[in-house]
Design a protein around this nucleic acid. Sequence first.
DNA 1: TTGTTTTTCCAAAGCGCTTTGAATAACATT
DNA 2: AATGTTATTCAAAGCGCTTTGGAAAAACAA
Lengths: 341, 341
Amino acid sequence: MNLRELSAQLGLSQTTVSRALNGFPEVSEETRARVRAAAELHGYRPSAAARRLATGQSGTLGLVFPGERNMLGDLLFTEFLRGCVEKASELSYDITLAMAHGSQSEEAVYRRAVRNARVDAMILSSPLSEDPRPALLRQLGMPFIVHGRTSGVEPIGFLDIDNEGAFFSAAKLMADLGHRRVALLNGERHLNFAADRERGFRQGLSSRGVKAADDLFVVGPMVEQEGLRAASGLLDLPPAQRPTGFVCSSIGLALGVKRACSKRGLVIGRDVALIAHDDRLHDMGAENFDPPLTATQSSIGEAGRRVVELCIGMLRAPGDPMPAEIWPVDLVVRSSTMPAL
Amino acid sequence: MNLRELSAQLGLSQTTVSRALNGFPEVSEETRARVRAAAELHGYRPSAAARRLATGQSGTLGLVFPGERNMLGDLLFTEFLRGCVEKASELSYDITLAMAHGSQSEEAVYRRAVRNARVDAMILSSPLSEDPRPALLRQLGMPFIVHGRTSGVEPIGFLDIDNEGAFFSAAKLMADLGHRRVALLNGERHLNFAADRERGFRQGLSSRGVKAADDLFVVGPMVEQEGLRAASGLLDLPPAQRPTGFVCSSIGLALGVKRACSKRGLVIGRDVALIAHDDRLHDMGAENFDPPLTATQSSIGEAGRRVVELCIGMLRAPGDPMPAEIWPVDLVVRSSTMPAL
DNA sequence: TTGTTTTTCCAAAGCGCTTTGAATAACATT
DNA sequence: AATGTTATTCAAAGCGCTTTGGAAAAACAA
């Protein structure tokens, strides 16, 4: 059943039926009700393709698969994606995925997506500190929202968590508990969030007069394996240089730290203090850690949901200033932290 | 630049230009070349929306987020999805995702996708043994391909790996090596692949005259945690009942088994034999295990790529019989298996 | 030369919706 | 009664592509 048939059934014009269904004001409530009932009765659904053609809007948001593949990255992306899809579905939008393949550069992927006009806007995830994509999309005239932040002169719509503030708090807590040698296990520095976290961490320590030792900063893949490796190295330092506290950029890293401690007969929350950032991944919650983990936490799935809202909001009100949301991050104190000594 | 403008430029009709670009035979190679050059020059890209409306095809494949969320499931899904997106992109198709949300049942999701005619076909992943979705999609007239198998009377297009054969081989190898008590750590039985694997495993043992002991079958989430738990229980059995070999449905489970062994001073490949199924997830390869793991292996990403091919093939040749592919699974022997005693 | 087939191209009719510009009906104001 | 307002409804023009049914031109055969 299409619009023409439905209007014929009702003895109304397509215009009126279309307007009735789309909530325009210039149609009487009586006819609107009649139209709605008939549409419901006949199971009428407007054709997405026709609407697209008529409006120029596709009702679709695009997302690009991150180039680097690793376990944590995939997990984070999936959770973020899940949030996006969930919210998009609520708002009757579709999410389509793209990815660079073979010889095709990532740039080509964006170009293709834009040219074919298959999406109304794009969502950029896990941006680098110096990310070329925003400039490219801007130039191509494709609206977008960034999840995370990146350096760019122009106003860019984004949603990010307060990574700097979170790690400031974590470092400060460590310092307040008397820890003087605190290690930071973090992601690679070219990832913008990792840089933010390091900055916050350093400031958190120095705000309490503790100075950060360069050998206590380790960057790498944010997985258990790496946490184990890094922590093992640090715990084998001579006592005077050995850290008494660890701050980790992921629960995975924290797991590694715990194993390194276990091997040496050290107990988290008694001999070693531990704080990790918790992205609220399913079945990797800080509260299920043993012992329950003091953590900075922020749901990446929730962020996905919100990014979609921002994206659609931007499309509906093109004139509005770009959204720029920075979510505060809770520091939840559990049993993995204790005073030094 | 749209078709009308382009044809005007060329002094040709829209018909001819359209046909030239889409490779129809009734246009001379000379004009075709001329048209192609002009299209290239002006950066002409046909509007996806218009084509959709005209052809009734959306150039889009749908995929539904699995309902259950767990780490391994997400990892597998992501890798599968990556394969799908990659191949779809090569073939100029889009992948859009849907998911059940809030009060909306999964059924409603499919109904919505179908009614809105936003996708040409759907891909079903991780089917249950008794899965209602194929019947639903069939009834709604939506073409689909299943990744995995499910019981259904009608012919259903699917791609699956030979789970039964793989675990048959694994069990047989164990038996041939002299193991008489071999445990199977598997996924929940309502998952079709888990049932297939159990069947193959049992037959593999009995083909060598070894009879399976019920207490050596453990089902649950296929993650490290669970592997550790299950293996710990089994290794603490009295010597006569204790398994000397383990077959695991995932590398994650194998990791857990290894940790359970380590705690008891047992060494994989010396005291305990271990075989696992390897889905070729990025950075979870059996060859990187310590020790390198004897494994049945099959790339789930590759399966994603192939499923998309099958799907599109089905759309292009609607009359053809449904594809039904079962991939053989390699059993690669490495150092985690040794003769019993 | 004429008839027939093949090749090459085109005009026009959709696909199903939104939206513009007007027409009509109903009501209120002088 | 004439005029202005407001509330409803409609006819028709796209949106940019594919595809049908010819027609013109070219190639071939009789």
